[in-house]
């Protein structure tokens, strides 16, 4: 399997490329008043308004650096009521795709509802890399903003 690797400070994560629609460079986003910090803004993706989640805000409590290597990964997530939706995930240093065998993932060894961003991990020479699934991120944030009420 191939995974997009990205960094959030010293923490490294991978995201399966089967979940990825496209990786686009950092573009100017349209912001709206009263949005939570982790919601960086909206942008026009091929004729659709797509919200962008700033994972640096969500995970590290600071906005992502405005650099060339800071990119938006467009993914499709399944939210409440099995509604499918396109969202952009703003991350830093999303410059590499790595191949990982499915068997290489192992249990992280820490659990709990307060640690939702830790999935199974793999090891490389620089340490451990955690795998995350886009839909899991939305278990922790306010779904009312991103998904229409039933």
């Amino acid at each position: 399997m191939q995974y997009v690797k990205f960094n959030l400070d010293e923490f490294r994560y991978v995201l399966s490329i089967t979940d990825v629609i496209e990786i686009i460079p950092y573009v100017k986003l349209t912001s709206l008043p009263n949005l939570p910090d982790y919601l960086a803004g909206l942008f026009n993706y091929r004729g659709s308004s797509v919200p962008v989640i700033d994972l640096c805000s969500l995970f590290l409590k600071r906005p992502c650096n405005k650099k060339l290597s800071t990119r938006i990964i467009v993914v499709e997530v399944i939210g409440k009521n099995s509604v499918k939706k396109m969202v952009g995930l703003m991350v830093e240093k999303a410059t590499e795709i790595i191949k990982v065998e499915e068997d290489s993932f192992m249990d992280a060894g820490v659990y709990g509802d307060d640690l939702p961003y830790i999935g199974p991990v793999i090891a490389d020479s620089a340490g451990l890399i955690s795998r995350i699934h886009p839909s899991e991120i939305f278990l922790q944030i306010d779904n009312e903003i991103l998904f229409p009420a039933a």
Partner: peptide, 19 residues
Amino acid sequence: TKVADQTNLLSLNAAIEAE
């Protein structure tokens, strides 16, 4: 540098499309 960055991005998207 900008060209290299664009190229990198292109290669990532190409890999995704290939997948």
